[in-house]
Write a protein that binds this DNA or RNA. Structure first.
Length: 897
DNA sequence: CAAGAGACTTGACAATAAATAC
DNA sequence: GTATTTATTGTCAAGTCTCTTG
């Protein structure tokens, strides 16, 4: 199969030469093509842009989750029949450029930004809302409007929530925040269109958009507000572009550009045409324009008047068309999925087949434990430990300087497992009487030694390691050499659960070959077991899965740890692409979906009503689905598992969220919602206790089952992906003003940041953050001093006087006024740059941009934008991202999500 | 349908490497 | 050069979602 060379390889080459896989890949390509086609279709894109720009404010929208690639099966569902997905009217009618109007849809979404939570490093350092000393910090917010700059928390819509908290994990939580319940500021709102406009929806039943019956004005306002916020933010952002982030030398740019080009070409050339693509493309559909707009945005746009009328019209049209489309779509979908499968697999393969041939070398194990002989003290006296006992003691000692030491659960679990190894009657009976510091110190010294090694030594060591690992790094899949992701077996250690995990501190025992099941092609040589005298647990030849090996998680034997191919592999790329294609498909259905759930806000069927409200929250706030969790896991929630205590209704229609989400990251946000939603939440909460589920009639499987009736393959996470990508696409098109590369990069980062906020992707503030800010401020002050001096000299120079002596008493060179003015200008520029850097830094201190870039933003949006604006793709994607997204590199410049 | 098994994506953070500052 | 900072890569925990079972 494989032989076809594909673009991919090339790309890779470009990037990293060495690693490249030698083999040629086949044309997996299929995927690529699709895109291109579609893009082409899109031609309209330009139009789109315009519109977008034109649009009123964008609200921020948010929604969507990650999509997965499951497309395939879905196809099966014929959704169409079921609930017909509606397409958005928008598009069709594109005609109305005013894009806006059309959508009457939804609810006003508002802003969604979750506030961030801040987590301080462990400690909680609260961040204060106001910015700290650093002046700059404070600034960020410039006016209210620009919230962007503000810290996430601040941003929250209302700003209320700023509070932050550290990670919630720590328990604290909610309470602290409370502060500001401010309501959304109105300010925002205004700008945008009248809410009303937004709001109004018509109700349409079937598919049409939703409109809201309620439409009460209220909604509108909210929306507006929200939007505004969003807009505000954006604005601000736009302002700021100045900052330059770029650190790299200009030279790079060039190269980048070139490379981009190159790649592009290559890819094109290489791209094979697949059926798939064809099929995909076929759908001309999509691309249309507006639908994709996030709800929030839409709402804004529309002018009231128009809207309704236009909306109505559209609606009807839409409906009909939508139906048709629907069917088509569904079909398409199906096809797609099939294709995709096929594409993945070599032709001929059966259902669910992921590969035809698979060759790899298994996994590599960590080296055996090397006893160091350093003794811990028990009640002040050294204790002899066996190597096994010492190994576990060392695991604990090494963590002496972590937050885990302040967690009783951690110590308790550790002691419990260690005691099993010590034996019942061991001298050591009590953890409190143990002094691990000798081992801790020994470990610190070892670390120091390593650090002190000469570069030569380090290099040698590295090469040795590479030599040992090399054979495990690659697999040959369908004849193509692909990188393996995690070929190293996880070493033993103490379980580091996040948040208040009940199992933290437990011993994660060493994994042995007899724990590992290998999956490999029939006929391929079975990997040799790296540990003499031992053997694999099992050998399988299952080509319906993508894992190369797995073992049971020692902490939770019911779960598995898998060894997969790396993100840069064709297999992963294919599924990544499918994920984005699915979320793009949502664009076509979103209007109908919103209309449907809006209608169901009033349903008498409680389950239906809960599904509607949950879907609304997922759509608007990009919440995760929220599966049920066991008692032996950290207590975190998602949409379906929100508790009464997590959502506080604040009249007239604000919902205040405060809960621990994935990884025990706190989500805080206050959002205006449609009155119907507000009332529904009040109803769902009534008569329940703080810890009860708000959505008691719901779980993720019911929710997803319902979503699948609306669109093939639709699940809750798709909304997150959709929301993230559509936001990026719109912000880029709205805010790119044709500046230089550095300015465009700033625009991108700003959009990226917005998405990160929507998705609540946070990071801990680095320990040195405040020190760094302080230093920046000092420098700025210093420069200001210089500036003053220069100014004085200038005025003296103009009068023909010599400059004053410098502070240290040395005489200065006598410069002419022109030279001094030049210096002043330079200094001013320096100060400005530093101020911007400081702002950016403060702004991003709790926001993690990487997660959305890796998982939520369709790389084609980025690549196409880079091509359109001549930004070298390397300015946005690093080497691993470039490798991961090779499938997106040949996208047509006109591509729009 | 509920529970559980299974497979795969998403996520924060730690460890390293690379870039800058001193 | 060396010390810091910042960016990249690696780690592995924690989600989502599907499919199977009883």
């Amino acid at each position: 199969m494989a032989v076809e060379a594909c673009s991919k390889p090339k790309l890779m080459d470009d990037m990293d030469e060495e690693d490249e896989p030698l083999v040629f890949k086949r044309s997996t390509s299929s995927s690529k093509q699709n895109q291109s086609n579609s893009q082409a279709q899109k031609s309209s894109s330009s139009q789109k842009h315009d519109r977008q720009l034109g649009r009123p404010m964008p609200d921020v929208h948010v929604r969507s989750q990650n999509g997965k690639s499951s497309v395939v099966q879905k196809g099966k569902m014929a959704l169409s029949s079921k609930s017909p997905p509606v397409k958005s009217p928008l598009r069709s009618p594109e005609a109305s450029n005013s894009s806006a109007k059309a959508y009457p849809l939804m609810p006003p979404e508002a802003n969604l930004r979750p506030s961030a939570t801040y987590r301080s490093d462990n400690v909680n350092r609260p961040m204060k809302v106001g910015k700290p000393s650093i002046g700059s910090a404070a600034e960020p917010n410039d006016s209210d409007d620009s919230e962007d700059d503000k810290p996430l928390s601040a941003r929250l819509s209302t700003g209320l929530s700023k509070i932050n908290s550290n990670n919630a994990s720590k328990g604290s939580n909610a309470s602290r925040l409370g502060q500001k319940p401010s309501i959304p500021k109105q300010e925002d709102s205004d700008d945008e269109k009248p809410l009303s406009s937004k709001v109004q929806l018509k109700s349409n039943v079937g598919t049409s958009y939703a409109s809201k019956s309620y439409d009460s004005d209220e909604d509108k306002p909210l929306v507006a507000k929200n939007n505004q916020n969003g807009s505000a933010l954006r604005d601000s952002s736009s302002k700021k572009p100045s900052t330059m982030l770029s650190k790299r030398p200009a030279s790079e740019i060039k190269s980048a550009g070139q490379s981009l080009v190159k790649k592009h070409k290559l890819s094109n050339a290489s791209v094979p045409i697949n059926n798939k693509q064809a099929s995909v493309k076929a759908e001309p559909k999509v691309e249309d324009d507006d639908d994709h707009v996030p709800i929030s945005q839409r709402m804004k746009k529309p002018a009231t008047a128009d809207k309704k009328s236009s909306a109505v019209k559209n609606v009807t049209k839409v409906v009909s068309s939508s139906l048709n489309k629907t069917n088509k779509k569904s079909k398409k979908v199906i096809k797609k999925s099939q294709y995709s499968k096929s594409s993945k697999v070599p032709p001929g393969s059966g259902e669910g087949q992921k590969w035809t041939t698979l060759i790899h070398n298994g996994v590599i194990f960590p080296p055996p434990y090397q006893p160091h002989g350093v003794k811990i003290l028990y009640k002040g006296k050294p204790v002899n430990l066996t190597p096994e006992q010492e190994e576990v003691a060392t695991m604990f000692a090494v963590m002496l300087d972590t937050e885990y030491m302040s967690k009783p659960k951690f110590k308790e679990n550790f002691m419990s497992d260690w005691r099993k190894i010590l034996g019942k009657n061991h001298i050591i009976q009590n953890l409190e009487d143990c002094d691990f510091s000798p081992i801790y110190e020994w470990h610190q010294k070892e670390k120091e030694k390593k650090k002190q090694m000469s570069t030569e030594e380090k290099k040698t060591l590295k090469e040795e390691k590479l030599k040992q690992e090399e054979k495990y790094m690659w697999a040959i899949v369908n004849g193509v050499k692909e990188k393996v992701g995690n070929f190293r077996v996880e070493p033993p250690g103490l379980f580091r659960g996040r948040g208040e995990h009940p199992k933290m501190g437990k011993l994660k025992r060493r994994i042995r070959p007899s724990d590992i099941t290998i999956n490999i092609g029939k006929g391929a040589p079975i990997p040799e077991c790296p540990i003499p005298g031992e053997r694999w647990k099992e050998i399988r030849h299952d080509n319906t899965v993508t894992w190369l090996a797995f073992w049971n998680d020692p902490i939770n034997p019911k779960e598995f740890k898998y060894v997969f191919l790396a993100a840069s592999s064709t297999l992963k790329g294919q599924s990544d692409k499918e994920k984005y294609e699915k979320s793009r498909l949502l664009k076509d259905y979103i209007q109908g979906i919103r209309a449907a759930y809006t209608k169901d806000f009033a349903s008498k069927d409680l389950t239906k009503k809960q599904i509607a409200v949950a879907t609304y929250l997922i759509d608007k706030l990009a919440l995760r689905a929220g599966n049920e969790k066991d008692d032996d896991e950290a207590d975190t929630v998602g949409c379906c598992t929100l508790k009464v205590e997590n959502v506080e209704p604040i009249p007239p229609n604000i919902l205040k969220f405060d809960f621990l989400g994935k990884d025990s990251i706190r989500y805080q946000n206050e959002v205006e919602v449609e009155p119907a939603v507000f009332k529904a939440i009040q109803q769902f909460r009534s008569g329940k206790k703080a810890g009860d589920d708000i959505f008691d009639k719901l779980d993720t499987s019911k929710l997803n089952a319902h979503l699948k009736e609306l669109m093939p393959g639709l699940t809750a996470k798709v909304f997150r992906t959709y929301n993230a990508s559509i936001t990026l696409d719109e912000m880029l098109s709205r805010e790119t003003k044709g500046g230089d590369v550095a300015e465009n990069v700033v625009v991108y980062q700003h959009a990226n940041k917005e998405v990160a906020i929507i998705c609540n992707h946070q990071r801990t503030v680095s320990k040195s953050h405040s020190a760094q800010m302080l230093r920046l401020n000092e420098k700025i002050e210093e420069l200001k001093g210089v500036l003053e001096e220069l100014t004085t000299d200038l005025s003296r120079a103009k009068k023909g006087k010599p400059p004053l002596k410098s502070a240290d008493g040395k005489p200065k060179r006598n410069l002419n006024p022109e030279a001094l003015e030049k210096k002043i200008a330079q200094t001013n520029a320096k100060i400005e740059k530093m101020e911007r850097d400081k702002e950016t830094k403060e702004d991003l201190k709790t926001v993690a941009l990487g997660t959305s870039k890796i998982n939520y933003l369709d790389p084609r949006i980025t690549v196409a934008w880079c091509k359109r604006h001549e930004v070298p793709i390397e300015k946005i994607f690093n080497k691993s991202l470039l490798a991961k997204f090779t499938w997106a590199m040949d996208v047509d410049p006109s591509f729009r999500f």
